[in-house]
Write a protein that binds this DNA or RNA. Structure first.
Ligand SMILES: [Mn+2]
Ligand SMILES: [Mn+2]
Ligand SMILES: [Zn+2]
Ligand SMILES: [Zn+2]
Lengths: 140, 140
DNA sequence: CACATACTTTAGAATAATTATAAAGTAGTT
DNA sequence: AACTACTTTATAATTATTCTAAAGTATGTG
């Protein structure tokens, strides 16, 4: 099928542009991360568990960490913090905002939030980006 | 001196309202955290190191963690995330915003940022708070 | 004040997330 | 096919944090 070949090529490009050889393990990780319609927010541990659950031959922890780090360094993933002690990653690399709803993360497109007033950067500095977190709770 | 007695009482009140007896160790931690004019952003490890540096009899790691957790649970400290793997705490418990400048954190008062457009909460949910992080970089 | 008792402090062990190590395996090149 | 650099993996190490349990202290009562 055309689609699958094309997608695999995209994944291989992501790996190559991250300085990584497209090994089996890495291509499968990329498929899992980027072969979906919606943004994916995850921890390395979650990624590892959900991928390895279905496999007879497991991919090692070190490979998950190495691959995620390389993809992040190359700008194919963004890191963020939620609760602490664990790194989260986001397949949406555009600057955008989030709802945080009890450990669940939902993207808010950048243009859904605009500012009336924003402080200036301290002197010698400039603004790299502005990101908003809207924490949710249940009604009533 | 009047001032010092008054301050100690404030610290003791914070501890009592956190369900903690005002032991020496705890009162000194409170002095260190709350006896300053400006907001203090810190990790438990930083707090421990800077306090213990000056003392002959060190306060234990467990006491730092216990005290910080109790103060946080009682609402006298707020927890937040910066880079990952470490919890940060904030003596400013009001809802407010931050500049992040290479590991340095600067408060932005809530009224310095206002919104023109904000998304609605998903149904069944409501907004608990909205906090903004402005990441800085050096000019040029 | 003297005691009892519950709460604290502490050193050290345990855990969770992540990173480092180094031996065995594989991709890309010739 | 052979070479070499890059990869994978199991395992050890590290960092931040939490747990444990023994020894110490705050606080109420007589
Ligand atoms: Mn941690
Ligand atoms: Mn990290
Ligand atoms: Zn996102
Ligand atoms: Zn702050």
């Amino acid at each position: 099928m055309h689609k699958m070949i094309k997608k695999n090529k995209t994944f291989i490009d992501k790996l190559r542009s991250s300085g990584l050889r497209p090994t089996n393990q890495r291509v499968e990780i990329c498929k899992f991360l980027f072969g979906r319609k919606k943004t994916f927010h995850f921890t390395v541990e979650e990624l590892k568990n959900s991928m390895n659950l279905k496999r007879l031959k497991k991919i090692s922890t070190a490979t998950f960490y190495n691959t995620v780090h390389a993809l992040k360094s190359a700008g194919h993933l963004k890191e963020f913090s939620l609760d602490n002690n664990t790194s989260y990653y986001d397949t949406n690399i555009a600057s955008h905002h989030h709802f945080f709803d009890n450990g669940k993360v939902i993207d808010i497109k950048s243009d859904k939030i605009t500012f009336q007033k924003l402080p200036e950067a301290p002197k010698g500095k400039k603004i790299k980006n502005v990101e908003v977190v809207i924490r949710l709770e249940n009604n009533n």
